[in-house]
Design a protein around this nucleic acid. Sequence first.
DNA 1: GTTGAGCGA
Length: 236
Amino acid sequence: MSEEVEYRCFIGGLAWSTSDRGLRDAFEKYGHLLEAKVVLDKFSGRSRGFGFITFDEKKAMDEAIAAMNGMDLDGRTITVDKAQPLQGGSGRDHDGDRSRDRGYDRDRSRPSGGRGSGGGDCFKCGKPGHFARECPDESGRGGGGRYSSRDDRYSGKDDRYGAKDDRYSAKDDRYGAKEDRYGRDGGRDGGRDRYGPDRNGDRSGGRSRDGGSRGGPGGERHSRAPYDRPRAGGFH
DNA sequence: GTTGAGCGA
């Protein structure tokens, strides 16, 4: 009942170029911000178009919401409202049945393993930042199984990333064909460049990783890349 | 361009 023990606001509709600093600079005027952050995509690193701010005062949060909701920031209309409790795994579980007012005054119990384990202490050494399997403390390695398990984990992880990266390489290549401004990225490209386009054997064959899905009307799925840069009104 | 972040026993 009563109120939440935290005052966090969700900021949606942000421009791609808006950063955590932009949020803080725009909201700290309403009160002291304990935290101001813009959520970034894990696969591309760019902002996802929304962020969060945390106040140390309820009134500050209320004023910020009342003053900034529907306002324009960095050229985009932003949505400001109370943030969700962020629980239930990563909050990826979306349910249309739930409304925004749920949870604000609703009593709920904290899952013993939810965010409550934010300390991240492992059962082996009790230190945060890693799990028991990755515990650096040798006092509990239990017969060297730690090394084999770690090596196995490493190879599996690496292999998985390789497959994922390969998928992105094809995707990235598609953008490269349309716009080269993102196709020249070194880093990962340099590592798989020899395995990427070269894998096709011949790039003039016309047959690409799409499997020839195109060739008929309506074959185009996307007519616009997600890497659109917001502009302050035009660049001459 | 709309609810995050760290995956588990």
